[in-house]
Simulated scan of single mutants.
Amino acid sequence: MRRESYRDRALVVRTYDFGEADRIIVLLTRNHGLRRGVAKGVRRSKSRFGSRLQHFVDIDVQLYPGRNLESITGADTVAYYGSGIIDDYERYTAACAALECAERLAATDGDEDPWLFDHLTETLARMQESDHPTLVLDSFLLQAMGHAGWAPSLFDCAQCGAPGPHHAFHPAVGGAACVNCRPSGSAEVPEEALHLMWLLAHSHWPAVLSTAASPDGGHLLAVAHRLTRAHLQWHLEQKVTSLTVMDQF
């Protein structure tokens, strides 16, 4: 039976060269989850829409279903988030990490939930002008994990529910752990770092920026990022390459 083409909003999260002039595009769509399509001829200089099938471009894309890959037959730009990102290394690496993590999270999510797409576009828009792109990324990740149903516990003990604050954290038990429940290998963390993660998870930006500007802010930001990354990768059961690249600098 012939399947009809359809349109959806989308962000490019990954691309692969294919053949001499084509490219495979992995899209996070707003209403159809992850879609993999082939854009024919986009690597030629005369391509009608190849420049729109790039990272950090919010597009209105037309797709035609195929057996293995969909065909991308049109794309119109809705918004461009690359300005302020592609010319700043820290913002660029954080934005690339957001795209890769969104792809991994979408693979575990339902197809028809627009939340992840909407949240990713909001994150890229905020990242364009942020002086703390890693904080914007961590906020995105914590909220996305919460939406997926495996947000870390940041106050009460994740194992027994004992009220905090606690000073141990381990992804295996679900986040913060009391002295009786903390497993071997738990990270010893200041309670202020867990509170910062809570602020990020709830988008309390004035308090987040106040913490970042405090004398101990740099250390707390680093700890919060390390714990967020560890919790994400534990539950995805794989490393996220772009997060590893970020932490090398």
Rank of each mutant, 00 (worst) to 15 (best):
K46L: 10
K46S: 15
S47H: 11
S47F: 06
R48E: 12
R48I: 08
F49E: 03
S51M: 04
S51Q: 09
R52W: 04
R52V: 07
R52N: 09
R52M: 08
Q54S: 13
H55P: 11
F56L: 10
V57E: 11
V57N: 15
V57F: 15
V57K: 10
V57T: 13
D58Q: 05
I59G: 00
D60W: 05
D60Q: 06
V61A: 08
L63C: 13
L63D: 03
Y64P: 01
G66M: 13
N68K: 14
N68L: 14
L69Q: 08
L69G: 03
L69D: 05
E70P: 00
S71E: 14
T73M: 05
T73Q: 11
G74S: 14
G74C: 08
A75N: 07
A75H: 02
D76F: 12
V78W: 06
V78N: 04
A79E: 15
A79T: 15
Y80I: 12
Y80R: 12
Y81P: 09
Y81C: 08
G82T: 03
S83H: 14
S83W: 07
I85C: 01
D87I: 09
D88K: 08
D88I: 04
Y89D: 11
Y89Q: 13
E90A: 15
R91L: 06
Y92S: 12
Y92Q: 09
A94I: 07
A94L: 07
A94T: 06
A94R: 03
A95F: 11
A95S: 15
C96T: 08
C96P: 00
C96G: 08
A98G: 05
A98Y: 01
L99R: 00
L99P: 01
L99H: 00
L99C: 03
C101M: 09
A102H: 02
E103C: 09
E103D: 11
E103V: 04
R104I: 00
R104A: 08
A107G: 11
T108C: 10
T108R: 15
T108D: 12
T108S: 13
D109G: 02
G110H: 07
G110M: 02
D111V: 12
D111C: 10
P114E: 13
W115I: 05
L116P: 01
F117T: 00
F117C: 02
F117I: 00
F117A: 00
D118G: 05
D118P: 01
H119E: 06
H119G: 00
H119N: 08
L120M: 12
T121C: 13
E122Q: 13
E122V: 04
T123M: 00
A125R: 04
A125N: 06
R126E: 12
R126T: 14
R126S: 14
R126K: 14
M127N: 04
S130W: 01
S130H: 05
D131S: 15
H132E: 10
P133E: 11
T134C: 01
L135I: 11
V136A: 10
D138R: 09
L141K: 05
L141S: 04
L142V: 03
Q143W: 01
A144D: 00
M145K: 04
M145S: 03
H147E: 10
G149L: 14
W150I: 01
P152N: 01
P152S: 02
P152H: 00
S153C: 12
S153Y: 10
S153A: 15
L154I: 04
L154G: 03
F155W: 10
F155G: 01
C157N: 06
C157G: 05
C157S: 07
A158E: 01
